[in-house]
Amino acid sequence: MKKFKKNWQIQKNWQLIFPLIGIIGLFYSAYKLAFLIITEFHIVFTPLIILVLFYLLLKFFLFLFKLLEKKWIVTYRWEIIRIFIVFAITGSSSVLIGKPIITLLGITKENLNPFVYWFLYIIIGLIFYQILLVFFGWLFGQFQFFWEFEKKMLRRFGLKRFIN
């Protein structure tokens, strides 16, 4: 455990919650992906496929950590996990909020061309994503990181006048 704490630069035990949430999320993702791959329920192979997918996802994200650690300015390595958790929660939440909003506006697949429907769905989701990203960043103690990230994103969208 000391090696783990040293590797992730964890000073206090409460900071262990972020690697734990990351591992649980990774396992859940492997579980969901396994059932997308397996069309029939094979009780013998399912745990093996889940473990293989978990291992591959873990290696992929550890590789991403090394790349992003140089690009993102964070004080401790465990904060990268916290940032990934904020991105995951924000993405899911923007979809959950966007769906009722688009329905409330009367936009459905039946009354619009599918291309127009999905375009509007993505635009509405993107608007809520921007708002939720800063909110969840604040909630997880990473407001400054996500505020700078948001300003950079708005500049790329050509919305410089909305940034101080």
Rank of each mutant, 00 (worst) to 15 (best):
V116C: 13
T108S: 15
W147D: 08
W147Y: 02
F60G: 00
I43Y: 08
K6R: 15
F54H: 13
I97H: 05
A88D: 09
F149W: 01
I50H: 11
N113G: 09
K109C: 10
S29R: 00
I23A: 01
V95L: 09
E110R: 08
L132C: 12
I127G: 05
E69P: 11
I38K: 04
F146E: 00
N113L: 12
M153C: 14
T39W: 15
V95Y: 03
Y55C: 10
L48W: 11
F140M: 10
F128I: 08
I122S: 14
E150P: 07
K12I: 10
L154T: 10
R155H: 12
S92K: 10
F54K: 13
N111A: 02
I123P: 03
F60Y: 14
V44M: 06
G106I: 06
F60T: 03
N164R: 14
Y117Q: 12
Q11L: 10
L139A: 12
F60I: 11
L126N: 14
L58D: 12
K71H: 02
Y28P: 10
K152G: 08
M1R: 06
W72R: 06
I43Q: 04
L53D: 05
Y117H: 06
L139G: 01
I37H: 10
K5Q: 15
N113H: 06
Y31Q: 08
I127C: 12
K5L: 13
S94E: 06
F65P: 02
W118Y: 12
I17W: 04
I83P: 05
F115K: 06
K5F: 01
R156Q: 04
F136I: 01
F119R: 01
N164F: 13
I21N: 02
Y28D: 10
L104Q: 12
E40L: 04
A30L: 05
R82N: 14
S92Q: 14
K70L: 07
W147Q: 02
F149P: 00
I122K: 09
L26E: 03
L56H: 02
R82F: 13
K12Q: 03
I81A: 01
F136E: 14
Q15W: 00
G25Q: 07
P100Q: 05
A34G: 11
L51P: 00
F84G: 00
I81W: 11
